[in-house]
Design a protein around this nucleic acid. Structure first.
Length: 569
RNA sequence: CGGGCUGUAGCGCAGUUUGGCAGCGCACCUGCUUUGGGAGCAGGGGGUCGCCGGUUCAAAUCCGGCCAGCCCGACCA
């Protein structure tokens, strides 16, 4: 490609609205343009890079036996109703009506649609099957943000495995785990597999592939000693045991004027330190008010509450609901003596005695509370969110918590979709059995952005060769006949050697060309100028390291081809 | 959905307080000079000032309504 003919509208200034590094650089370096919130046009550079990611994915999924399909984006709402997810997905699903007033939705994932085809699998002899597609997903995100990191229309590689039993599913899951690890490694992402919540997907287990980045929206708890890694939506840690005094025979009520928060009570004379308080939160789980108890200094992890209780719909109770239920306002709530209301408590509270909590009367608290004696706990659950510095659940080192981008997610679905949608086979005994399914997703544009988030410097992007829109650029420093002829020769030879190469033949000053090449992040630059040619050399500059090698004109192409091929993975 | 901020040329912004010619830088076009790290000079093109309505002799500017976008939170495979 000739730069003079290419549409690469780089910007001199940072776009004002872009905050995340990848958003800022992808706009400035002429990869993307926004059409509306969460919807982006991929310009030719981005499309080239995305295609390279796509090729890596196809190679690796094909390698584990994947068969590529193309499924529609328009789905009848009916099929989503059948699986029960039409309501669960709520407003995140784009909905429309066709001319016959038929209700139609845009696909946000494809379990249901793949499963309808899978109903044509009728015998265990046809299993296992591994099907996938690379296609557009539509999700009406409440808050699209950070450029390509969270959008409303994007490309996903989604695969679905179909097996006779759990053992088969475990293998398909394992195959994907390794394929994903290879995919991320090849595109230059240091992705950490972490235990994850299955959320709205359901199923028995899931692993997310997380890339550490400031712009990430997830939090990962990680132990560098033993390698334990989990999304904080699931992560566990050890709590140092607390030795309580036995305390009085029963709770003692005392006045706490002005106390509204855990902190207030810590400072209040006769109060208690946070770890000796019981925090009482009121949630509404599928319409049922529920008291959620945690140690005073432990934050609730809402996803855990949802996962552990199986609630579909979960929200904090409104102030008036709280007052009606307990007769007091937030700040003076407690579970002592509360009957007929579901109470769940965090494991860290088990066995604790002589604690302090609200009395369900404004500005009064109770001290001397022994949890198991005084509170009718229905379920003991792991509900608290781990924090950096706590002790690893698997060893005794302390864990760190960092922000990360979810670059891939693999799920064991079991029979969650095959049963309601009737995807069954006859086994060798002639018995009808639902197919065991797994589903596995990678968001292509998000991965593109994640690569930028982890490969940039003050000059711009520094793509790995595997994802770069062009592997090399030949920069022509002066448009005189000799220089142009030498540069064209190198450009032709690189192209003939199978290198994705761009020649910067624009009538611009060298500084402009250097800056643009560095901004868009082309891994290698061959600088061809009269000064070097006079000595028979050209320069080969490596974007990521900034190093420059002088190579003779005759050896330049071979030298560069060897280096690029080494990095292609 | 709640809070904060912003909509003026392709990009970055000033002008809005106090109503009175729609401006600046970059980018773009032409010419000349220049040419190893975002050139200089001269000339030029490009605008429903987010949209609708109101006030006024006159609205980018004041008033009302709406829309869009960004950030924080809620939410979210």
């Amino acid at each position: 490609m000739r730069w003079s003919q290419a549409f690469i509208p780089t910007l001199r200034d940072d776009p004002a609205e872009a905050e995340a590094v990848s958003h800022r650089l992808l706009v400035r370096a002429a990869f993307i343009r926004q059409l509306m919130a969460g919807v982006y046009t991929l310009l030719p550079l981005a499309y080239r890079s995305r295609r390279k990611i796509q090729q890596v994915i196809e190679q690796e999924i094909d390698a584990i036996g994947g068969q590529e399909f193309l499924f529609p984006s328009l789905h009848p709402a009916e099929i989503w109703r059948k699986s029960g997810r039409l309501d669960i997905m709520g407003e995140e699903m784009f909905r429309l009506f066709d001319r016959k007033s038929g209700e139609v939705v845009l696909g946000m994932t494809h379990e249901e649609i793949f499963t309808t085809i899978a109903t044509e699998i009728t015998s265990y002899k046809q299993l296992p099957q591994l099907w996938y597609q690379i296609h557009t997903k539509f999700r009406d995100e409440p808050r699209p943000k950070s450029g390509l990191l969270r959008v409303r229309e994007f490309t996903m590689k989604d695969s679905y495995s179909f097996d006779l039993d759990q053992e088969g599913l475990d293998k398909a899951f394992d195959d994907h785990y390794h394929a994903y690890s290879r995919i991320f490694a090849r595109i230059g992402l240091d992705a950490i597999p972490v235990e994850a919540s299955s959320g709205a997907m359901g199923g028995s287990g899931s692993v997310e592939f997380m890339v550490r980045a400031e712009a990430g929206e997830d939090l990962v708890a990680h132990c560098s000693n033993c390698g334990y890694a989990a999304n904080v939506e699931r992560a566990m840690s050890k709590v140092a045991p607390i030795v309580d005094e036995v305390g009085p025979d029963g709770p003692e009520r005392f006045a706490t004027p002005g106390v509204r928060t855990i902190e207030d009570l810590v400072d209040f004379p006769g109060g208690a330190e946070a770890s000796r308080q019981i925090k009482t939160l009121v949630y509404v789980l599928d319409g049922e008010p529920t008291l959620v108890l945690l140690r005073g200094d432990h934050p609730l992890q809402e996803q855990k509450l949802q996962d552990r209780t199986g609630a579909v719909d979960l929200r904090p109770a409104h102030p008036d609901e709280i007052a009606e239920l307990l007769g007091a306002d937030a700040g003076s709530l407690g579970a002592v003596g509360v009957l007929g209301v579901r109470i769940v408590a965090d494991e860290a509270l088990r066995g604790r005695t002589n604690m302090t909590t609200g009395a369900n009367e404004n500005e009064f608290h109770l001290r001397g509370v022994s949890i198991e004696r005084d509170i009718d706990v229905g379920d003991w659950l792991d509900l608290r969110e781990v924090e950096a510095g706590e002790t690893c659940i698997d060893c005794d080192e302390s864990i760190e918590v960092f922000r990360a981008i979810e670059c891939g997610h693999i799920f064991k679905l079991g029979t969650k979709y095959s049963e309601p949608l009737g995807a069954v086979v006859l086994d060798e005994h002639g018995q009808t059995r639902p197919i065991y399914m797994g589903s596995y997703g990678i968001g292509l544009e998000r991965n593109l952005a994640a690569v930028v988030e982890t490969h940039y410097d003050e000059k711009g992007i520094a793509w790995p060769v595997t994802v770069a829109p062009y592997e090399a650029v030949v920069t022509v420093l002066k448009l005189d006949d000799t220089t142009v002829a030498a540069a064209e020769r190198i450009y032709e030879d690189l192209g003939a050697a199978g290198i994705d190469v761009l020649i910067d033949d624009r009538d611009e000053r060298p500084g402009v060309k250097f800056n643009d090449a560095e901004l868009i992040g082309i891994p290698y630059r061959v600088t061809v100028g009269p000064r070097g040619l006079a000595e028979g050399i050209v320069e080969i500059n490596h974007r990521a390291s900034g190093t420059t090698d002088e190579v003779s004109v005759t050896e330049a192409v071979l030298h560069l081809v060897a280096r690029i091929e080494r990095e292609r993975l």
